[in-house]
């Protein structure tokens, strides 16, 4: 169910953004499978999922924020801060990962609440607020670790979890799936998602409809904080250590996946399954390149570069579809 672009017939269903993207993802996969080594193996698929879980989680909660017409540049930094705090609690505080994880989630919520307060209560632009917290959160992480310290004394069970699998899929996959399911329900099946959309399309219109605009916007940012903290724990488990530079640049990848997934950067339109496809497209691109290029450095940079270019393209194409929709609407009214 797409709320705004329900057009008629299979033709429009085929032309819908998600379908085009799915086609692209398949094309990508076929190409890398044909050209690269060991692309379509169970091992590599697990690898792709494991490595894209954190970005996937961030994209999933970035999506509601962009849906409301906002943006959160601080999620990558928050991931770093939460990872460091989590590591410190486990290593120096003597907390079990479970307790430390609970506290970390609360810290994430508080950090999201901090963003939300400045954005809704003081009516400051999300861009500049989260740019400030982008620097603040990362800075705190660096200050705590004095720039160099890493925390790596974790119980073996925790580390096993980070690299283990359940029913043939990496553990992370199940968590990602659960969060994706939750966000999908939130956006597509509850009044919250409906409110996010209304706010993204017309903040004033939403206010006039009696929707609690501030509370809903705040909710999106708090959710992003909590999930960033969760991503931090998973990141730590995967790489077996907590460092201050965890998650650098993830905010860009998350935004890219969301925009690539068809969510309008101007707010209002977008789907969660589109976002997931966006995550998959970005993940396959970087993994696939590493399979076809022998020098690992080159592939990482090339995929980063292509991600940036992809974002620009996705933005431009989003604009194009907006023009087409406007053109159709005009013709529809006239005729």
């Amino acid at each position: 169910m797409s709320s705004s672009s329900k057009l008629n017939g299979w033709k429009s269903a085929l032309l819908r953004h998600e379908s085009v993207l799915l086609f692209l993802v398949l094309l990508e996969a076929f190409y890398f499978n044909a050209v690269g080594r060991n692309f379509a193996t169970a091992d590599n698929v697990g690898n792709i999922i494991r490595h894209s879980t954190e970005i996937g989680l961030l994209a999933l909660v970035m999506m509601p924020i962009i849906l409301t017409g906002g943006i959160d540049l601080s999620v990558g930094s928050l991931l770093g801060l939460c990872a460091v705090l989590f590591g410190k609690m486990c290593q120096e505080g003597g907390f079990s990962p479970l307790v430390a994880g609970g506290i970390t989630l609360c810290i994430g919520a508080a950090a999201g609440g901090f963003n939300a307060t400045l954005i809704t209560w003081l009516r400051l632009p999300p861009l500049i607020v989260t740019l400030g917290t982008y620097s603040l959160f990362r800075g705190l992480a660096e200050a705590i670790t004095k720039g160099t310290a890493t925390y790596s004394k974790f119980p073996q069970a925790f580390l096993d979890f980070g690299n283990g699998a359940l029913l043939g899929l990496p553990n992370q996959a199940w968590i990602l799936l659960a969060v994706a399911m939750g966000v999908w329900l939130l956006i597509h099946q509850t009044t919250f998602g409906r409110s996010f959309r209304a706010i993204g399309f017309a903040p004033e219109g939403a206010r006039y409809a009696g929707l609690p605009v501030e509370r809903r916007v705040a909710m999106a940012y708090v959710l992003a904080g909590i999930v960033a903290a969760l991503a931090a724990i998973l990141f730590t488990a995967r790489v077996t250590q907590a460092r201050a530079d965890a998650g650098i640049g993830y905010e860009l990848l998350a935004v890219t996946a969301v925009v690539l997934g068809g969510t309008s950067i101007f707010g209002g339109t977008g789907t969660v399954h589109g976002t997931l496809l966006g995550v998959v497209a970005v993940a396959i691109l970087s993994n696939g390149l590493s399979r076809i290029l022998s020098i690992s450095n080159v592939s990482r940079e090339l995929s980063g570069m292509l991600t940036g270019a992809l974002l620009v393209l996705a933005l431009a194409s989003g604009l194009l579809s907006k023009y087409i929709a406007a053109w159709r609407a005009r013709r529809g009214v006239a005729g």
């Binding site: 400045l118 400030g132 620097s135 603040l136 990362r138 660096e142 200050a143 720039g147």
Partner: peptide, 12 residues
């Protein structure tokens, strides 16, 4: 090491 944090704080 506090530089970045303070920079963010000052912006905010």
């Amino acid at each position: 090491y506090w530089e970045k944090a303070i920079q963010g704080l000052v912006i905010l």
